[in-house]
Design a protein around this nucleic acid. Structure first.
Lengths: 233, 233
DNA sequence: ACCTGAACACCGTTCAAGT
DNA sequence: ACCTGAACACCGTTCAAGT
């Protein structure tokens, strides 16, 4: 015994969920609505209670604490990701489709960016996705620990790329910034670095959304190429 | 004018910093100590004030708000990262050294994981690192937008891998968990996924630190291979 | 079995007032 | 120029008490 018991929503039995009263499903649905509308900081037990016409503290009957509630909504996120069935030998397509799907989900639910990688992914949906991904990489030819390494590399790339994207979107949504003033401020800050200025001028603001798409596609191709290289080595 | 002015600590002139009173440096140093000791959630304006023998609200003279304070400490993080001088034609080594350095800094200051990718990196240290990295990729042969894409792919991998690592460490530090009970809980959760169970059993807990190192090395090699492939294409 | 309100120990931030 | 305390509008969580 080196420490206390591991505890997670997924390791405790939920309340029986009888007919009267609220249910976890109802609470999780309301929480997601609040999160989609107001972001991670916008979710408070008090607001959530109010939304459900309940006292602020009633929720503690269904959920041990806020962290557990977040574990619950977090798994919903995984439920929205898709991993094509593994039958195909084209693991690149499977992995690529998953990567795009994961990014789309994060963009759709920006608050998830604050949870991914920080919340234990032990819910049924997360396990299902992980399992499919595992099988895909196994089918590709990876063996032993490298199955995990390959899968981790892919997901690390996806959320490492998407977190900044989401953060930028969120900041902009919170208070829209004048693009010119921003550009000017950044140029002023980078004044001492000619190479950076050059880079900035070359990358026109043009269509931000499209340029991110390009960056994602570029990086994804690189990651998949790199994994493939590990396979034949 | 599509929105309001962009604002960041780096775009405003700091207080003159006369002889009496506190200084930004002093405040930032104290903030980092607090962060290292108590984590991101452990930093509050009140506690920081107390640490500096000041009223809770005195800090607002030096810093517009907490976000700005975080921008300041965030740049310190970049200051601890190293990018070898670009002269070398061995961009792989430069990029690899930076990647390892970035990871080490994140492990040393776990709270930084909550800031990276979410805080505008416009401080002098961040710009210096970005600039060196840009030159390295340019030296490697990347051109135009692909310089940015390549650099983003690398950093995305690094912090995408390191965030979960840090999160796990933090959780463990907060309340140490019995490893057996954790393993058992996870196995129970994954009961319906034989492939996951198989994976778990194969990856002995053995030396967690070492297996992460291996995972990082594996992924980094893959990412660099993938980038190199983009170069010759 | 389920829900409540009061209470505790916190937050970030504003602002008038002090020196 | 710099610092203060009081005040406002919030937090998560506990717990005795209600139905």
């Amino acid at each position: 015994m080196t420490g206390k018991q591991f505890s997670s929503v997924w390791t405790r039995d939920p309340r029986p969920a009888k007919s009267p009263g609220r249910s976890r499903e109802e609470i999780v649905r309301a929480a997601m609505e609040l999160l989609d509308a107001e972001g991670l900081d916008g979710l408070s037990m008090r607001k959530l209670g109010a939304k459900l016409d309940a006292g602020a503290t009633s929720l503690y009957w269904y959920v041990a604490n806020k962290r557990e509630l977040l574990e619950l909504v977090y798994d919903e996120i995984w439920g929205e990701m898709t991993v094509p069935p593994e039958e195909t030998k084209w693991w690149r397509q499977t992995a690529g489709a998953f990567a795009h799907s994961m990014r789309r989900v994060m963009l759709r639910h920006p608050w998830s960016a604050g949870l991914i990688g920080r919340t234990p992914a032990l819910g049924p949906n997360a396990l299902e996705v992980t399992s499919r991904l595992t099988r895909a990489f196994k089918g590709a030819g990876f063996r032993g620990l490298e199955i995990d390494y390959a899968a981790s590399t892919l997901t690390a790339f996806v959320f490492g790329t998407t977190i900044p994207e989401v953060a930028y979107n969120e900041a902009m949504a919170r208070d829209p910034l004048d693009e010119d003033s921003m550009r000017e401020a950044v140029e002023r800050a980078a004044a001492a670095h000619p190479d950076l200025l050059e880079r900035m001028r070359e990358s026109k603001p043009a269509d931000l959304r499209e340029s991110r798409e390009m960056m994602f596609t570029f990086g994804l191709a690189a990651v998949l190429d790199g994994l493939e290289a590990r396979l034949t080595a």
